[in-house]
Design a protein around this nucleic acid. Structure first.
Length: 872
DNA sequence: GCGGACTGCTTACCT
DNA sequence: ACAGGTAAGCAGTCCGCG
């Protein structure tokens, strides 16, 4: 089988008219790219960049939205892989004789760490592996200090050529030409106006981002794939590296609405009851080989292929199964590496990896899904989960199997389609910001994205990218002590909450506190602890660190410009009712992408995994944060404002006058140089004495619950239910005198729970705690927590338990105290334990409203409950 | 040998 | 592999108790 259809642009397509890009975004009103293109290949979106070993050249995959095909383009500039050294050519004789060596060049670079221009030798090689990547004998291992030797070659190529992934390009006479996108003139003017007070250099950054982010995203033709494998033991998942079992079905759902299920014919399998939706095409195969050929044909046809865990399962299984069935390498359109499965033709996006990304989970989707399984993510985001099975996959009838398999492909596809292709757009926007291929952007964490965007900027400015060892040696020190033992430096301040109910509370917070600090205080790896003696008096509060006064830091500029664009442009426009819904939603995608990057921009500098790891930068950011909130509280107090709580970047103030608020906001702007805003206003807030733990009720009755146990996901349903009832009652309280009535109602709920519990009037499911097991069972060496005990019982009973699984357990009266819900019965439930748990959960709320749990139930009844439950 | 005080481990959360 | 700070429950240990 031929894996690549075509590398060259279609000859006949010599467009005379401007192509209409942007028409396919599925959104109305997104402006077309108005460009004159006289080229063989009309503007196409760059999605993927890799190194092709066979051709010894970088290969780019471009998606052309009209033909909806991928075109590959190979580098014609003779760009070569390289690394840098401070040794002169004369001392590099051994390198010269390396078989992969090509030639030397002498280059000038700016070394930001020393603030000096330096002359270096550039060692260019014939192929990337000669620089590094071989277990031994790589050029980078032959020299004492090698710079930029650990950057993947295709990334290095992207940075050197200033290539923008996710952006449109044209190919003319073999050359790759960026398609210049100009945002509408009116937007441009508005933007200029908003940023008119910034210096030209900063404005240039804003302009570059603006052009990158505004460019519309096309519709992508794509296919979701899912395979079902036979398994002799129902609770065992087949090993993809072994691939010793048959693939019995493959489901395919594409973005044009085509739905296919390929089914392997097997003896003794019946058609079964029920029906299959009419639009589904079911194709039976006599042999696995013919079925797989058909799958490979599909994989070689679609520009984008989606899976959920395809890297580690579906595509890996297909690959190894094909090898086992004697397919040749050329017949298998999949390229396996240690951590990913890529495709010869299009791009493979493993949605499991994307949704697993903590930053995506928290900042892009606001914790809307908590369990990263296909079922968990799909149920939360699109409201449809997997088909529930009564029998193992291997025992299903054809009808059941088809319906089951199909659903998986359908929901995998839908995860990229909901909210107007939100996920596809997020991926493209993140690729543009990070300059990474979409395969990488969906697989790497936020530190990889920020690394890439920083490296790209270094190359653009002709800066030397620092070696991590050198950075660590110069700037590995911190000067504060953390509150949590074992952490590297002190973090944020949390203000003691004032106990009780507070009516009319306004919450003020600093807009993007840490990114603002990075911008305003000029924080960057090269500016903190800079080499100039004259800067040493420019101290960061509470630390021994100083900041450069002579140069503006690279991260200060990058993070600062992204932050300002989000705060001043994209966020307001994502809410602007004057714009169309489609535009607002597009601005919201950009706004969210920026948020994901910005929220992590401080943390990465404190993370050893980050290639520009520089703890003093993170430490300084946090220190200035403490300074800002502390000063704000002082100022508020001196203005006569009552501060009842605060955490990191927010202060909660009780019944402030408008004048007091205005004065405080004004003070922050002028004195701290940071924007303080009214984030929200509560009708009332209830605090216990616990930090990060409160209930806020808005004027319209909506409720914010923060940190309270009753909201946590591991808590049994029945406790959540009782908790929510209590919250419901509290949300109806309008004025202080209504609390008495609320108290009585809450009393009723507590009583009811007590009665039901003593009668065991609950299902096991309602009583189950759901706790995630984060490592393999045998890695719990110091202690054996309850969920691990339950997991062990599960394993004994033949279940498979792996990290990331959520264990559902019941507290029972046996020697261990727990049993997994699968093995427990209602008679053995430890009702006393549940009573105690309910009590502590409700207490978090009751404390705040001045109620006592024991008092509510009546101490005698509680005691009798505890005593009674002892008896049975 | 038993139990309360304590520490440390683990999970889930907040910003 | 973005960070540190907080709450809570439980496992395990120490120490006093004639």
């Amino acid at each position: 089988m031929k894996s690549l259809e075509s590398f060259l642009p279609p000859e006949e397509d010599d467009s005379k008219k401007s192509p209409q890009y942007g028409k396919n975004t599925g959104t109305e009103e997104v402006h077309d790219l108005d460009i004159e293109v006289t080229t063989k290949l009309p503007a196409s979106y760059l999605i993927s960049v890799t190194y092709d070993g066979k051709r010894s050249a970088v290969s780019l995959k471009l998606y052309e939205p009209k033909s909806r095909k991928i075109y590959s383009w190979y580098d014609e500039t003779k760009h070569l892989p390289y690394c840098l050294t401070d040794l002169p050519v004369t001392e590099l004789k051994s390198v010269e004789s390396h078989q992969g060596f090509d030639h030397f060049e002498t280059v000038e670079k700016y070394d930001a760490l020393t603030d000096r221009e330096v002359e270096l030798t550039k060692i260019l090689a014939k192929d990337p592996l000669a620089i590094g990547g071989r277990p031994s004998g790589s050029i980078r291992d032959m020299i004492p200090k090698a710079w930029e030797a650990n950057i993947r070659y295709y990334e290095s190529y992207i940075y050197d050529r200033e290539i923008s992934t996710g952006m449109p390009y044209a190919v003319s006479r073999g050359h790759l030409i960026p398609v210049d996108y100009q945002p509408p003139e009116e937007d441009r003017k508005n933007l200029d106006d908003i940023f008119k007070d910034e210096n030209p250099e900063f404005k240039a950054y804003v302009d570059r981002w603006f052009k990158l982010l505004e460019c519309p995203v096309p519709e992508f033709r794509r296919l979701a794939l899912d395979i079902e494998v036979y398994s002799p033991i129902a609770t065992r998942i087949p090993d993809p590296r072994e691939a010793d079992q048959k693939i019995i079905a493959v489901s395919l759902a594409d973005s044009d609405g085509n739905k296919r299920v390929l089914v392997l014919k097997r003896p003794d399998v019946h058609e079964g009851e029920g029906t299959v939706p009419k639009e589904v095409k079911i194709e039976f195969f006599e042999s696995e080989e013919s079925m797989m050929s058909e799958v490979f044909r599909a994989l070689s046809e679609y520009p984008i292929v989606l899976t959920f865990n395809g890297d580690d399962f579906d595509l890996s299984y297909l690959y190894h199964r094909a090898e086992r069935l004697k397919f040749t390498r050329e017949q298998i359109p999949i390229e396996l590496s240690k951590t990913s499965a890529l495709l010869s033709y299009g791009a493979h996006i493993d949605l499991y990896k994307f949704f697993f990304n903590r930053s995506i989970q928290i900042y892009a989707f606001g914790q809307r899904y908590t369990e990263v399984t296909l079922n968990g993510v799909a149920e939360s985001l699109i409201g449809v989960g997997k088909v529930e099975l009564e029998h193992p996959v291997s025992e299903l009838s054809y009808t059941e199997l088809v319906n089951y398999a199909l659903r998986d492909a359908e929901i995998t596809l839908q995860l990229t389609e909901f909210d107007d292709d939100l996920v596809m757009k997020l991926i493209i926007v993140l690729a543009r910001i990070s300059q990474l291929p979409i395969e990488d952007v969906t697989r790497q964490g936020v530190s990889g994205w920020i690394r890439s965007l920083m490296f790209a900027e270094h190359r653009r400015l002709n800066w030397l990218i620092p070696r991590p060892e050198e950075l660590l040696e110069l700037k590995g020190v911190t000067s504060t002590t953390s509150i949590i033992e074992g952490k590297k430096y002190r973090g944020a301040i949390v203000v003691e909450p004032k106990l009780g109910i507070h009516f009319d509370v306004s919450v003020l917070d600093f807009a993007s506190l840490y990114p603002s600090i990075i911008k305003r205080w000029n924080l960057s790896y090269e500016t903190v602890l800079c080499p100039h003696p004259e800067c040493k008096d420019n101290k960061i509060p509470e630390t021994t660190h100083w900041v450069c006064k002579k140069r503006t830091g690279i991260s200060s500029k990058l993070i600062g410009s992204l932050k300002d664009l989000r705060v001043k442009w994209y966020k307001p426009r994502s809410k602007d009712k004057k714009l169309t819904a489609a535009k607002r939603s597009w601005y919201n995608v950009i706004q969210q992408s920026l948020k994901v990057i910005l929220n992590a921009s401080y943390g990465v500098f404190g993370s050893e995994a980050f290639s520009l790891y520089c703890p003093p930068v993170a430490e300084s950011t946090a220190a200035v944060g403490r300074y800002a909130i502390t000063e704000a509280i002082k100022e508020a107090t001196s203005l006569g404002i009552n501060v009842v709580y605060g955490d990191t970047d927010s202060i909660f103030i009780k019944s402030p006058t408008q004048e007091q608020i205005n004065k405080l906001l004004e003070w922050s702007n002028s004195t701290l140089g940071m924007e303080l805003d009214v984030d929200k206003v509560y009708r009332y807030v209830a605090f216990s004495l616990r930090k990060k733990n409160y209930l806020g009720v808005y004027p319209d009755g909506r409720v914010d619950i923060k940190g309270l146990t009753g909201k946590k996901r591991h808590v049994p349903e029945f406790i959540k239910e009782a908790f929510l009832q209590v919250i419901q009652i509290l949300s109806e309280v309008i004025s202080p005198d209504e609390f008495e009535r609320a108290r009585n109602k809450i009393r009723g709920i507590a009583h009811q729970c007590y009665e039901r519990l003593s009668k065991r009037d609950f299902s096991l499911a309602e009583l189950a705690f759901s706790i995630m097991i984060s490592k393999p069972i045998d890695r719990y060496e110091k202690t054996t927590p309850q969920h691990v005990k339950a997991a062990k019982l599960l394993v004994d009973a033949g279940y498979e338990v792996k990290p990331g699984d959520v264990i559902t357990l019941i507290k029972v009266k046996n020697s261990l105290g727990v049993k997994p819900v699968q093995l427990a019965s209602i008679e053995e439930v430890d009702t006393k334990k549940y009573m105690a748990y309910m009590r502590s959960t409700l207490e978090q709320v009751l404390d705040a409203i001045g109620l006592d749990f024991d008092e509510i139930l009546g101490s005698t009844r509680l005691e009798s409950f505890l005593w009674n439950s002892d008896q049975n």
